[in-house]
Design a binder for these strands. Structure first.
Lengths: 149, 149
DNA sequence: TATAAGGAGATAAAATTGGTCCTAAAGGTG
DNA sequence: CACCTTTAGGACCAATTTTATCTCCTTATA
C-alpha cells in the first residue's frame, strides 16, 4: 500500500543528479538518464513536468538542456514527488467530497487527513540539497529525528 | 500518490459494519455487502482474507456467516488495511534491499522509512471500535428524537 | 542545419475491480 | 441415515485502468 511508482523514483534520482552538478551547469536528458540509470524516454517526460512546474529551466537546441530553476536547498522532496505523482492523498475521499454516503463523510476521513498532513510535513522538510549532499544516512536520520523532537 | 484502493475502502466499511452489530451476532456476507454498499463478490474475497488472518471468525452452512474474532477495540485500522493491501510501504526500497545502486541504498531511503513509521503509527492508534462508534451526539440525539415521536 | 527539448500518441504488461461457478462444510428434515 | 438447503472457500475469468516505456514528429536555437 501507498507505494511510490517508478516515475517518482526516477524523478528523485534525476533531480538529485541535477542538484549535484556545479551551479549553472546544463545537463542533457541523455546524460541525466545515463547517470541516474533510468530510461531516457521516460525521464524526458518527467523533466517536462518539472519544467512546466518551474522546478527546472529547460533550453532547446545546441547547448540546451536542464538546470535547476532554484537552489536545491529550496526545492523540497514533496514538490518533486507531487510534480510527477500528483498530490499526496492516502484516500480518494480527501479529494472531492466523494466519500459522502448518506450525507456523512466516511468514518475514517479524519484518519486519512491526519496521514496526509503527516506525510506532507515529512516530505516538505526534506530538501533536494540534503538528499544530494554526500553524507551518510545515519546523519540524515538523526537530523530529521531531532527536528521531530 | 499513496492511494488506498477500493479494496481497502471496502474492507474498512465492511468490518465497521460487523463492529456495529450486537456482540456475537452473526452477519452474512450478503447482509454486510448491502449495508456497506459494496459489491458482494468482491467483499467475499476481502472477508476471506480477514478470516485467514484471524480478524474475523467464519462459519459455513445454515446459521453461518461472520463475527469479529476479537473485540473491535483491539482491532486496529492498520491490521484491516494491511490484511487486504499488504504492508504499508511508501517505497519498494523498504522491502528487499532492492534500492541499492552502487552499494549504497537510495538517497531518500531514510525519508521513506520515516514516512512508513509515521503512517504505521497513526493507523496503529485507530481502533475499529473508535471508527464504528457514533461520531457526534447530534446524530444520537436525532435518532432518539425520531424514535420518541 | 545540427541539436535538443516539447508533445502527441502507441503499446505491452501489470494491477485493479469486479464476476462466475464449483466445492466443502454445517444444519435441518423425513 | 440420506438428502437438501444454506453459506463460506477457492479457483478461474474478464473488463478496465494504470504503469512503464517507446516512437515519431514538431519547435526552438545556437
Amino acid at each position: 500500500m501507498m507505494e511510490l511508482t517508478r516515475k517518482g523514483e526516477y524523478a528523485i534520482r534525476g533531480i538529485i543528479y541535477l542538484a549535484q552538478q556545479p551551479p549553472g551547469r546544463v545537463s542533457l536528458i541523455s546524460e541525466i538518464a545515463a547517470a541516474a540509470e533510468v530510461p531516457q524516454s521516460f525521464l524526458a517526460k518527467i523533466f517536462q513536468s518539472f519544467a512546466k512546474l518551474g522546478l527546472v529551466t529547460s533550453a532547446r537546441g545546441t547547448g540546451g538542456g536542464f538546470v535547476l530553476a532554484r537552489p536545491a536547498s529550496v526545492i523540497t522532496l514533496r514538490e518533486v514527488v507531487e510534480a510527477v505523482e500528483g498530490p499526496i492523498v492516502p484516500n480518494r475521499c480527501l479529494l472531492g467530497s466523494a466519500c459522502e454516503r448518506g450525507g456523512e463523510p466516511c468514518r475514517a476521513h479524519a484518519v486519512w487527513k491526519q496521514v496526509q498532513t503527516e506525510v506532507v510535513h515529512i516530505l516538505d522538510d526534506v530538501t533536494i540539497e540534503s538528499l544530494a549532499r554526500n553524507r551518510n544516512l545515519d546523519e540524515v536520520t538523526m537530523e530529521s529525528l531531532a527536528r521531530n523532537r
